[in-house]
């Protein structure tokens, strides 16, 4: 038997500045794909012109969320020293699993088994997609015990994935949904986005706290590493976008959106943006606003509902 001293997580005293806020916010917005009536998209789907692109978009997203569940959040949580942050990251991992499953839910609803198998095969064969997964995965698996530098790099990679690389895929359902096409699948994406925006901000924030502890030279070295890493991912992303969106002619629009999100990822990490400001398609920009819409109570569960905090009713409740 080993003779280690195990420590217990103590939420009584905050050990991390914002861990509880991220924790509360994430749980408050819990959701399950089955709550969204994707089957209402079937009719439109049957006549939808770019089925192939759509399927591949979701295939690509599934892969990224799988990497993020199986490796990303797990590895980062494992090596993050703070127990409360560890807990938050583990919760994030669970949501990534929900996301990965939700794409399957859409596939199952819209596609035949053969089509689904083909998409998953394509995922394994697409060189750009595999390159992206590899570049992210290798940083995740390179984290070492008691080595803040490798942990920071992994957090950097995680923010790249969640605030930047997902968006070449998110573009399409948002673009279509904003025009009334395949609205319910787009709703699933809105819910995923709502989570990813917390993950990007939170992991970026944790990364910034680690970054502050480094010497100026180390900071400079890591910043340089970060920009080079981003640039490499960006160049691959441009090729992936061209490949994925070839038949739709949307590639230039998607690329603008990708650059916009690369800047956002850098901001989450407290770094200067890299690309000049461009005007992103307003239909898509509208789709990332996650404050919710005004919707019909009778046919939809809105994306805005959150679990309420419980507080006891006292005599003061009756004093106005």
């Amino acid at each position: 038997m080993s003779n280690l001293t195990y420590k217990a997580v103590n939420w009584n005293t905050p050990t991390s500045e914002l861990a509880r806020i991220f924790w509360d916010q994430q749980w408050k917005q819990i959701w399950f794909p089955e709550e969204i009536a994707v089957s209402k998209d079937i009719k439109q789907w049957k006549e939808f012109e770019h089925q192939d692109t759509y399927k591949k978009v979701f295939g690509g997203l599934t892969l990224l969320d799988t990497v993020q569940t199986n490796i990303g959040m797990n590895e980062i949580a494992k090596y993050t020293p703070d127990f409360q942050e560890k807990a938050v990251l583990t919760v994030f991992g669970s949501f990534e699993a929900i996301h990965a499953k939700s794409y399957s839910y859409i596939f199952t609803t819209l596609c035949t088994n053969t089509e689904i198998d083909e998409v998953f095969e394509w995922v394994q064969k697409n060189e750009f997609l595999q390159y992206k997964a590899n570049r992210i995965g290798e940083v995740y698996t390179a984290i070492k015990e008691d080595d803040p530098e490798s942990l920071w790099k992994a957090m950097f990679a995680s923010v790249m994935l969640e605030s930047f690389l997902f968006y070449s895929g998110f573009f399409y359902p948002l673009y279509l949904g904003g025009q009334g096409v395949l609205r319910n699948s787009a709703e699933v994406i809105s819910l995923i986005l709502r989570d990813e925006s917390i993950h990007g901000v939170a992991v970026g924030f944790f990364a910034q706290n680690i970054f502050k502890t480094f010497s100026a030279e180390k900071q400079q070295e890591l910043t340089l590493w970060g920009y080079e890493y981003l640039l490499d991912l960006y160049q691959n992303e441009m090729k992936y976008t061209d490949d994925l969106y070839a038949e739709t002619g949307l590639s230039p629009e998607v690329k603008k959106y990708v650059r916009y999100n690369a800047n956002k990822a850098l901001m989450n990490l407290g770094l200067d943006t890299m690309f000049p400001d461009e005007e992103v398609n307003p239909v898509v920009m509208n789709g990332i606003s996650n404050t919710g819409s005004t919707y019909d109570f009778f046919s939809q569960k809105g994306a805005t509902y959150a679990v309420a905090k419980v507080a006891p009713i006292t005599d003061d409740t009756f004093k106005f």
Binding site: R183, N286, S293, T294
Partner: peptide
């Protein structure tokens, strides 16, 4: 009003 410019999801359509 719920929003100055309302994003309205009713049935399967979205109206701004």
């Amino acid at each position: 009003v719920t929003e100055r410019v309302e994003v309205r999801d009713y049935a399967d359509s979205r109206t701004i």
